[in-house]
Design a protein around this nucleic acid. Structure first.
Length: 180
DNA sequence: TAGAGGATTGAT
DNA sequence: TCAATCCTCTAC
């Protein structure tokens, strides 16, 4: 059961990030289908410094986040890693959920989906998918059983000062696939 | 047009 | 703990 567009339009990005734990992510790219259960996510909002679109900072890169929820926002980090985000909220309210780890449904080598960079590599996600709709047939999410989750502060955003302390990271409890 | 830095990773 | 690595943004 593919997630409806209304799910992504939720104005509470933190709630969306939490609800995403346990749902499944699917890609059908280059004739190959990949999928996994989302076990780790982080919320980002224009209201706080860690977000690229903080204070409505609109650039070519962040443009996708200003679009209506239900789109894929993918960007390159450290010149190496493709990071996959789910855009939420309505148009001109840039908020997104970073998917940090999934648990593969098919058999897969361990650790290959732990961390946003590896995750994107496993799913064949590249920046060419930036702006692609999540209700289409290239990349989409499906309904799943909500997993018990734990809350913690986000990772790798120390530059955001006090906002780095926000408990906006969600992980599936006792799951071996989450990043360290 | 040049310089600085980053939502990371994997090896030391 | 630290360096690799290159795209993006900002300042001049």
């Amino acid at each position: 059961m593919k997630l409806d567009k209304s799910f992504y339009l939720n104005p509470d990005v933190v709630a969306v990030a939490k609800q995403l734990i346990g749902k499944s992510l699917h890609t059908s790219l280059n004739g190959k289908h990949s999928s996994g259960i989302i076990v780790e996510s982080e919320a980002y909002s224009y209201k706080e410094k860690a977000c690229h679109a903080f204070n409505n900072k609109r650039t070519k890169r962040t443009e996708t986040m200003f679009q209506e929820g239900g789109k894929a926002y993918i960007y390159l980090c450290y010149g190496i890693h493709h990071l996959f985000n789910i855009v939420t909220n309505i148009k001109n309210k840039p908020e997104a959920v970073l998917i940090r780890a999934i648990q593969p449904i098919e058999t897969a080598p361990k650790k290959c989906t732990s961390g946003p960079g590896n995750l994107s590599k496993y799913l064949a996600i590249t920046t060419s998918l930036n702006g692609v709709s999540l209700t289409g047939n290239k990349i989409w999410l499906e309904e799943g059983n909500q997993l018990p989750c734990e809350v913690s502060k986000r990772i790798g955003i120390d530059y955001a000062q006090e906002d780095a302390l926000l408990p906006w990271r969600f992980t599936a409890k006792d799951n071996q696939w989450i990043s360290k």
